[in-house]
């Protein structure tokens, strides 16, 4: 397993009131993401634990893209990855912030 944490600043805090959400499943080629509000307004913290070694730069690129697109300020994301492709990762990230934003 390889574990690393990526921190970023988002332009805006993520709207909505839901405190936490979990999306995805740790199946082969898939991942789960636990999203929790931290109370901070613009900081984003993403911890990745992955079975695929040596892809940190790919993760950084996907996460930079995600932060720019959805501005998840004030959110901590914890990821368990079992070899998901970048497009699956992006899909789950967007799905996760969508649940936090829209669902009660």
């Amino acid at each position: 397993m390889e574990t690393f944490t990526i921190r970023a600043q988002a332009p805006r805090p993520l709207p909505g009131t839901r405190a936490q959400a979990i999306v995805g499943v740790v199946a082969s080629g898939n991942l789960e993401i636990l999203l929790e509000r931290t109370g901070e307004t613009d900081a984003v913290e993403i911890t990745v634990e992955t079975a695929s070694h040596g892809y940190r730069t790919v993760w950084e690129a996907v996460i930079a893209d995600f932060v720019a697109r959805s501005s998840p300020g004030g959110i901590r994301l914890s990821i368990h990855d079992n070899g998901a492709r970048p497009d699956t990762v992006m899909l789950r990230l967007m799905q996760g912030t969508n649940v936090l934003e829209k669902q009660p």
């Binding site: 397993m1 979990i22 740790v26 636990l34 992955t50 079975a51 914890s78 368990h80």
Partner: peptide, 19 residues
């Protein structure tokens, strides 16, 4: 999942846990 009560044994097999 937020309690993070997970398997402590999967790491021995280099497998990802689930929350």
């Amino acid at each position: 999942p937020q309690c993070r009560i997970m398997s402590p044994h999967l790491a021995l097999f280099d497998l990802p846990p689930a929350f």
